[in-house]
């Protein structure tokens, strides 16, 4: 089966969006960090009344941690999140998602419905997987290591 690569017409739903991890904006920073840790996630979407109002990524977490013991972890996540994050809709093409990611330096893009409710999250890894699916022979049929030389020729 041959996949035709249509970056410009395939919607972002092809790029393996994940179910987002959402928290309410009143949640404490400590709570969000604990959630990221237990779910092993790279980011958390912050919602108010079901609508997307912010995003808290690993990068935000690092900045917070680097500032050391000065942070009060009981403050609401609103104070540490990135407000009004760039989001896309399911109708957008993979090409435009990639363009947004590389132009702005994002690795995750929240996907929202027409009312602004988060429905998914597109990650760079998901896009990579989508691209790799178009030439699986060249990526999955590789020897265990580059320059791998068998000790003996195969066969009888």
């Amino acid at each position: 089966m041959v996949f035709e690569l249509n970056l410009g017409t395939d919607s972002v739903t092809h790029a393996h969006p994940q179910t987002p991890s959402c928290v309410e904006s009143e949640t404490s920073i400590r709570g969000v960090l604990a959630q990221l840790q237990s779910e092993q996630r790279g980011c958390c979407l912050i919602c108010r009344e079901g609508l997307l109002v912010g995003i808290f990524t690993e990068r935000d977490a690092i900045r917070l941690m680097a500032s050391g013991t000065k942070v009060n972890l009981d403050q609401p996540i609103e104070t540490a999140m990135t407000k009004t994050p760039v989001a896309i809709t399911n109708a957008e093409s993979v090409a435009s998602a990639i363009a947004t990611m590389s132009r702005r330096g994002f690795r995750q893009l929240p996907v929202v419905d027409d009312q602004g409710r988060p429905v998914g999250i597109v990650k760079a890894a998901g896009i990579l997987h989508y691209l790799v699916e178009h030439f699986p022979h060249y990526v999955y049929n590789l020897p265990p290591a580059p320059h791998h030389t068998p000790q003996q020729r195969e066969g009888a």
């Binding site: 690569l5 249509n6 970056l7 410009g8 017409t9 093409s93 090409a95 435009s96 990639i98 990611m101 590389s102 330096g105 690795r107 760079a124 890894a125 896009i127 990579l128 691209l131």
Partner: peptide, 18 residues
Amino acid sequence: SVRDILQYLTDRMPMSPS
């Protein structure tokens, strides 16, 4: 990094204008 690879692939892939 994964972004270098995305950049490499998208630079070389035919991308119809969207």
